[in-house]
């Protein structure tokens, strides 16, 4: 279970996240939605340790993530995908997955390297990676260089890398961005298949159709604050949510259209400077 407990994040004067509290329960898919700049990505980046929190706590099964160095967060059971794909482009697909299974302790890493109990462990790691690739329909690409795959496949490899270590919390940061209709449908099936009583899933997405069809619970953010939380049906009929998206109460069809219009189709690596602005 992932818990946000009165989390606040300030960048200078701006409160990107303002006293947000909610829980993400295992066994369900929790979507976080909101207009651009609502603070969705900031939430993910804080949970993953990329940003610190200004105040409040983020916990995975009672372990406070902000007290851990970033690499330990993965070992605490939280893994993520990125809004802009961040695969290890020069490595093969299966090696990309193996990175997530590298033994955490340097001692065992060195022992592994020089063949003390290494071979069996390495075989097992490889088998686990191939099992996950199999499951996501990527088996044929296992030995290909990750950077040479098509965009949609790279997105799936990122998902595979995030789940291979069997995390307890999975953060999906816009997994459907840039995917075509067929690929989105396929992704939906994969996400639904991942649902298990041991896994808490957080989905950040602009594709309202996808969100409404697979989320068990939806958290709506607006201007850094938690606006509403509820099932798809409850969110659809929430007038505050409609206002946040459209400036006035309206039908859910319009919300979906507005959200689609916001979808950023230009994908760039972080730090390249170009950002998409809302008209």
């Amino acid at each position: 279970m992932l818990t946000f407990d009165h989390v606040t994040k300030r960048f200078g004067e701006l409160a990107a996240i303002d006293d947000v509290s909610f829980e993400v329960k295992p066994g369900v898919i929790t979507a976080v939605i909101g207009p651009n700049g609502a603070g969705k990505s900031t939430l993910v980046n804080m949970a993953a340790g990329s940003y610190g929190v200004t105040s409040g706590r983020i916990l995975v099964d009672g372990v406070e993530l902000q007290k851990l160095p970033k690499h330990r967060i993965a070992h605490a059971g939280l893994s993520r995908t990125y809004q802009n794909i961040r695969l290890f482009d020069g490595m093969s697909v299966v090696k990309n997955l193996e990175v997530a299974l590298v033994p955490p302790r340097v001692g065992s890493l060195i022992a592994n390297t020089f063949g003390l109990s290494g071979r069996a462990a390495a075989e097992e790691r490889r088998a686990r990676c191939h099992a996950v690739l199999d499951r996501l329909g990527l088996a044929a690409h296992a030995e290909r260089q990750a950077g040479s795959l098509a965009y949609g496949q790279q997105k799936l490899v990122e998902l595979a890398r995030a789940i291979v270590a069997e995390p307890r919390v999975l953060l999906l940061d816009e997994p459907a961005a840039g995917l075509n209709h067929g690929e989105t449908e396929q992704l939906k099936q994969h996400i639904l298949a991942l649902r298990s009583p041991d896994l808490a899933m957080v989905l950040i997405e602009h594709d309202m159709k996808l969100i409404m069809s697979i989320s068990d619970t939806i958290v709506v953010m607006n201007r850094g604050q938690l606006l509403a939380q509820g099932t798809a049906g409850e969110i659809r009929s929430n007038t505050e949510v409609q206002e946040a998206y459209l400036g006035q109460p309206g039908a859910i069809k319009d919300i979906e259209a507005a959200a689609r219009g916001r979808r950023n189709r230009v994908r760039l690596r972080e730090g390249e400077g170009l950002t998409w602005h809302q008209p």
Partner: peptide
Amino acid sequence: SAVREDQDAARGCG
């Protein structure tokens, strides 16, 4: 190799 390719993503992978 992961450190070489993308150090931050490597940390994110543990």
